[in-house]
């Protein structure tokens, strides 16, 4: 009886250890679903709509990876994480991708052994205040109470910014964006600081957005992007090229509207042919994907521009301008490696 139990526990242990060796792609295919770790709620990036479905820029990226790997963008199940829990959840295998306003930094990449696969949004940290406070610049914030999400790059930037400007402040630590909004509205803090994108998202969800403003200073670089676990290069490549396919789609003029027709004809620009599987793209099978992987992404989710505009652009309450998040040829920072 007792030996049986010991044996059972031991085999369970071996199986557990064994399963870690299977490739991430195989796991996802076997399950038929991609597990994606997202925000607890940030308008435009990841927030539930009135039917309870997750919507947003970060959510669409999860859907794009599901389209590429499973052929169906809807096959995603979402797990939320706060700034504090996200890396632990990723490491513990609660998701295959962390798609949650996460800044790429040296120590997260190297010391925390995460794999950052690219940048999907170039951001920077800003401050937001009620207009009636009469503050015009972040340099006037000495002595203020500042709401701040813990476990973020934000809190380190904040400490450095105030120290560098010889100002004191009173940090009010909180866990999620919605808690921050509550404390900010109740006046527990004078200022809320986070990535500028998060500030626009927060302001857009207020009853009177025009009573609040984002101060002109941007105090840091926050290249945000998807993260995967260390150690599975094939999976990291899949996620990285999913993002690049979306950007290439914008660059080559492939949209969700025209992708099907472009995919069925021989295009003058052979790069379109290779992206859409008309001409052979060496290595797609090695990645474990089918030749129409990019067609699935763009037809079901859209190219980068479409996803940006639908979630964050001028037609949304956030009204974020593309700015640095344009293609290099338009004056932005995205320069996609050739699809060759």
């Amino acid at each position: 009886m007792k030996t049986k139990m010991i044996l059972a526990v031991a085999t369970a242990g071996v199986m557990f250890a064994g399963s870690a060796l299977a490739s991430t792609l195989d796991d996802v295919r076997a399950r038929g679903k991609l597990n994606c770790i997202i925000n607890t709620g940030l308008a435009g990036f990841a927030a539930p709509d009135d039917k309870g479905n997750w919507k947003g820029f970060d959510v669409d990226f999860c859907r794009a990876v599901a389209a590429a790997t499973l052929g169906d963008a809807s096959k995603v199940s979402y797990t939320t994480a706060t700034g504090k829990t996200r890396f632990t959840k990723l490491a513990a295998g609660e998701g295959e991708i962390l798609s949650r306003n996460t800044t790429w930094t040296f120590s997260r990449d190297v010391d925390l052994s995460q794999t950052f696969v690219g940048v999907s949004y170039y951001d920077g940290q800003g401050f937001m205040v009620p207009k009636k406070l009469g503050v015009k610049s972040a340099k006037e914030l000495g002595g203020a109470s500042v709401c701040i999400q813990t476990g973020t790059t934000t809190e380190l930037n904040l400490a450095e910014f105030f120290a560098a400007n010889n100002m004191k402040y009173n940090p009010v630590p909180i866990e999620t964006n919605s808690e921050a909004q509550e404390l900010y509205k109740a006046g527990r803090c004078d200022v809320y600081t986070t990535d500028a994108s998060g500030l626009y998202a927060t302001i857009s969800s207020f009853d009177n957005p025009s009573d609040h403003m984002v101060l002109p200073e941007i105090i840091s670089k926050e290249p945000l992007g998807p993260v995967v676990r260390h150690g599975d290069d094939q999976w990291a490549d899949i996620v990285a090229w999913t993002l690049r396919a979306m950007l290439a789609g914008e660059e080559l003029g492939v949209t969700s509207k025209n992708v099907k027709s472009l995919a069925s004809k021989d295009n003058k620009n052979k790069e379109i042919n290779r992206l859409l599987g008309k001409d052979t793209l060496q290595g797609v099978t090695k990645l474990g994907l089918s030749p129409d992987w990019a067609v699935n992404i763009i037809s079901q989710v859209g190219n980068y521009e479409e996803v940006f505009e639908a979630n964050l652009g001028q037609s949304t309450p956030l009204k974020i301008a593309r700015g640095a998040n344009q293609l290099y040829r338009d004056g932005g920072l995205y320069y996609v490696p050739p699809i060759k």
Partner: peptide, 21 residues
Amino acid sequence: SALGKDISFDFLSIPAGYDIN
């Protein structure tokens, strides 16, 4: 070790970088 981590308490002696109210 599969995650590429070790166990070490060296972090205790590096600057914390955050403020406490």
